[in-house]
């Protein structure tokens, strides 16, 4: 049984579970069978059932997690391809992203506070709209719990990816550019992959939204939180 804590085994298991989850979604066609959600649930159940310590899993998982950093650098390629569009739409993009970023941080803090969250949890939730490598670093710098942030980020992405378009439709956001942009702003990479399924235009602007909000959140959240009186 000791072999179960072998990190290479745990990496292989993560791959296998993910491929299986992708297969399940393809077969069922259900949005709820999101491969990321299914994989996470399956792996947590596996760890709980076998009693493997999370720290053992993390030793293997870190090798996968590590690739998020170069993946964020890789977004520079999408950004480069969109430079022309960004230049043309500088003002609407900038206003929309600023508003989205500020409204997002303030709303999450206010609602969490209202529902009785502790300081640590509020700080962990604040950067939840952006991709994990950024969110975790922000969380750490403002006194949150990076592990909780990572988990909430993933849940936000899954929720945004599954319900995002319905919310946008209900809220009368009609332009595909605005819709794509808000998907990326609210639900980072996972929202972007949902947007890509709806068409190239949605996907392009969604990746723009995730990039710009990632940048703004990294730059602005310490400022906003200190203005709200949470961070000294």
């Amino acid at each position: 049984m000791e072999f179960l804590t072998n990190k290479v085994f745990l990496i292989a298991l993560t791959f296998a579970v993910f491929v299986m989850s992708q297969y399940i979604q393809r077969r069922t066609g259900l949005k709820l069978m999101n491969p990321i959600l299914v994989s996470i649930t399956a792996l947590i159940c596996f760890l709980l059932a076998t009693g493997i310590d999370y720290s053992d899993y993390k030793e293997g998982g870190d090798y996968i997690d590590f690739w998020l950093k170069p993946a964020v650098v890789a977004l520079g390629v999408s950004l480069y391809k969109q430079l022309e569009t960004i230049r043309k739409q500088m003002l609407p993009l900038l206003f929309a992203e600023m508003a989205g970023c500020v409204a997002g941080i303030i709303s999450v803090v206010v609602v969490a506070k209202f529902l009785g969250a502790s300081q640590e949890v509020i700080m962990s939730l604040a950067p939840k709209a952006v991709t994990t490598p950024i969110a975790m670093e922000v969380s750490e710098s403002i006194g949150g719990i990076p592990a909780l942030t990572a988990a909430v980020v993933v849940c936000t992405g899954i929720f945004g990816g599954m319900a995002g378009f319905r919310i946008i439709k209900m809220g009368h956001v009609k332009s595909p550019i605005a819709g794509g942009l808000s998907m990326g702003t609210a639900a980072h990479a996972i929202g972007t992959s949902a947007a890509m399924e709806c068409g190239d235009r949605y996907g392009t602007f969604s990746s723009l939204g995730l990039t710009l909000n990632g940048l703004l959140t990294a730059l602005l959240s310490p400022v906003i939180l200190s203005l709200l009186g949470y961070v000294p």
Binding site: F95, G100, G104, K128, G160, S182
Partner: peptide, 29 residues
């Protein structure tokens, strides 16, 4: 112990970001 504020804040804030970003972009444009 804190799933209510965590889930509540996540859901509300995600909807807020989606709508604010989308509408501001549409209006400015």
């Amino acid at each position: 112990s804190e799933w209510v504020p965590i889930v509540g804040a996540m859901v509300v804030s995600t909807a807020v970001i989606l709508l604010v970003t989308g509408h501001v972009h549409q209006q400015v444009r």
